[in-house]
Amino acid sequence: MKTSIIGLIIFINFILHSTLFQHIELKNVVPNTSLILVVCFAINSKKDKGAIIGFIIGLIQDVIFEKVIGLNALAYMLIGYIIGTTNRNIFKDNPIIPFVFTALATVFYYGISLLVIYLLGYSLEYFNILRFMLPFEIIYNSIISVFVYIYVSKIFKSIKNRY
């Protein structure tokens, strides 16, 4: 039951992220809803689930869109796992939590992806990306994550109450 709901959300997010959300970009930045979902699921679920969900979301995204396969899967899996290991010690009802975690996760995602891309020898404007895109995306992602988090934790709570 729970798995099928999560799977459905992942699938819908993937479709929307590549189509509808491309229209709401600001300053060349599209909010990374996949990352937000990984963070919100990882906070709410048990520790290993976060890593698995991150891995699946990342792999789907890599296979269909990216030139290099495994990059997003790696980043999302590590994010899911790290958040999963810390989530016993935090208050889950506070809306600051998803905000802070998403901000940190965005920084982490940028760090690890840009490092791998750099090591693979792709030419990117690393300096401009860090200067113009990163601060904006942190804020954009974090604000959206608060709303997504409220909805996701509702789903998890209702499932818990039912059983």
Partner: peptide, 14 residues
């Protein structure tokens, strides 16, 4: 065009 890459760094579409 059916979809654009979710990544903000690469301009790839399908």
């Amino acid at each position: 065009i059916v979809g654009k890459s979710p990544s903000n760094w690469f301009d790839i579409f399908t």
